[in-house]
Design a protein around this nucleic acid. Structure first.
Lengths: 230, 230
DNA sequence: CACCGTCTCCGCCTTTTGGGGGAGGCCAGA
DNA sequence: TCTGGCCTCCCCCAAAAGGCGGAGACGGTG
């Protein structure tokens, strides 16, 4: 039995969704809330598996509430029930979508979806999947494809480099100085300079800063997942 | 009426999908193909709206075929029918997914989905949406959220900079030299050096190369959509 | 064998970079 | 009003970076 909570400041809308879901044999609406603050309290108390969350609400909006809920979940880690959030809203500007995904939402659907699809979304998310409105998936894909596809012609230029030169370039893109690169690759400082020079020359770059840009643009280096502790 | 083409090297599988789809009143399977090469020919001839494409095929795999089909579509631009591709495969390694999205596919679903869901996917994609298998959506989201969320604590460090310093940092992340920054910001070269110094100092960086790394990691600069022409 | 590409290193040179300090003007807040 | 932050610019200096040519070693290829 899936335990669901519905969060929306409009009681009528809330009841509507709740009724649709409660009508399913394997779904039970265990709580409702009208604000973000209420949602957090109610979630603690009733431990729902799935939360349907509106965005525009008084006191605390749904995105903020989602972030807090999933953040505390992280802290509780192994122990508690890991609840999952589906954002259910009338609007879908990119900003909302991104913030929602960043907050850890597993779904983002618009309120105009047919009831069966909503039920389907709940089940999908409960199964560990994710559900986005078609148009949103579309945008997500195109954003993603853009990032991926960006460095194609650049990656070709990358092939003109020798193995060693690529290693040096990667080290440069790591923020290393020539001396550090020498140490990391077990070669002399002079050798590093030679490699750096040929990298710049072959790629048509002027200095190591441009080399870093190149590395990121062509995908040799990627944002995210680095400690910029230097 | 949606014109669909099914591409799979296993005739039995192909027929199965075709039958399921043909059974729908608003869907008509207008062509089938067993290889990528055949798919491209058949697509030209029958102008389907939607193509269900397997990946593993002889002669030319589905990803390659998808890329070529959608590439030529780009060339034909306004004129021709813009067909959309759904990748339909048994496997879902990230590599396949990414290449598929990069190639321009609008969907990526696994062969184990229930028939109704396949039909639904076809309709969704025909409507201009995108459909991914739930687990894939999940991964796409987490990859995306990671990239988005990566620079949060870094972005805080960014706030310690003044407006001008952020502008200078952005220019550095653009691969500009101090002289070029001076020209771009209409200030003296000496001033640029002052700003650069305080940027490095405030962010705890050593040189402009590390500054570029920082800019990318915190989201001030993003890969994709730049001419690395320098 | 001779040739070529790669990796390794060496000097020498110029330019750029980055650190240090100092200074004047401007503007907002105490 | 004065103080402090910001932007602007200057000088000097040391370190790093980058360009240049040269050179030895190694492995594969014609």
């Amino acid at each position: 039995m899936l335990r669901v909570m519905v969060v929306d400041d409009q009681a009528l809308v809330r009841r509507g969704f709740a009724l649709v879901l409660d009508n399913e044999p394997d779904i039970q609406v265990v709580a409702e809330a009208g604000t973000g603050v209420e949602a957090i309290e109610a979630a603690r108390e009733h431990q729902p598996d799935i939360i349907l969350m509106d965005i525009r609400m008084p006191e605390m909006d749904g995105l903020e509430a989602t972030a807090r809920l999933l953040q505390t979940e992280e802290r509780a880690e192994a122990g508690d029930t890991t609840c999952r959030v589906i954002i259910l809203t009338t609007f879908d500007p990119d900003e909302y979508v991104f913030r929602a995904l960043q907050a850890g939402a597993s779904g983002f659907v618009l309120k105009d979806i047919p009831p069966e699809a909503l039920v389907e979304a709940v089940r999908t998310v409960a199964d560990g999947g994710a559900m986005l409105a078609p148009g949103i998936t579309q945008r997500l894909i195109s954003q993603f494809a853009q990032k991926l596809g960006a460095g194609r012609n650049l990656a070709e230029r990358l092939e003109r480099l020798t193995t060693r030169e690529r290693e040096v370039l990667a080290a440069i893109a790591d923020g290393k100085s020539n001396a550090e690169i020498a140490e990391a690759l077990f070669i002399g400082a002079a050798t590093v300079k030679t490699h750096v020079s040929s990298v710049l020359s072959k790629l048509g770059l002027r200095d190591r800063a441009q080399a870093v840009v190149f590395a990121y643009e062509c995908g040799l280096a990627t944002a995210g997942g680095r400690d910029v502790g230097f």
